[in-house]
Amino acid sequence: MTTRLTVNGAVVDAESDPDTPLLYVLRDELGLHGAKYGCGLGQCGACTVMVDGTAVLSCLMPLLTVEGRKVLTVEGLGTADAPGPMQAAFIAEQAAQCGYCIPGMMMRAQATLTANPGASEQEIREALEFNLCRCGTHIRILRAILRAQGEMQQAAASRPVGEDVL
């Protein structure tokens, strides 16, 4: 039995058991190692990915609830050669120390700005509150997200009407 879903734009037929957490499917079956296993209890945010535009904790999401849905992971935001705006901003601000929480941070931020492109700094802080960073680079992370927001808004302003990026 397989479960069909879309991961970073590609249709995938996952063969893992339906009760397998999406995180394990991404990492073990699909080889996407961006999303991290932190606590496994939905309390740290390291495994955050986007499903249908919303940030979810992939360690808690059974594969059976992802059927037919669109998953976006940090790998879907860009590549090492051509990083997307969120990734480029994190690089520019050197927002990582150990980096373990960063993919989750980026996906939570991406979901927040997708839903609310003009989010205030306070709204971004509140949205990110759930995601833990034990190195304490929060100030840089926040700067990176604000930088990404600026670049995304500029890009949106110069983009032809109707073009849909995500």
Binding site: L41, G42, Q43, V51, T54, V56, L57, L60, P62
Partner: peptide, 25 residues
Amino acid sequence: WGLPPADGMASAVMPGFEGVLSDLD
């Protein structure tokens, strides 16, 4: 929306499943 954690103290906590579960599920 679960039970959001309290700051700086041990507390009951439950993650929310808003993004996981469709209305039907």
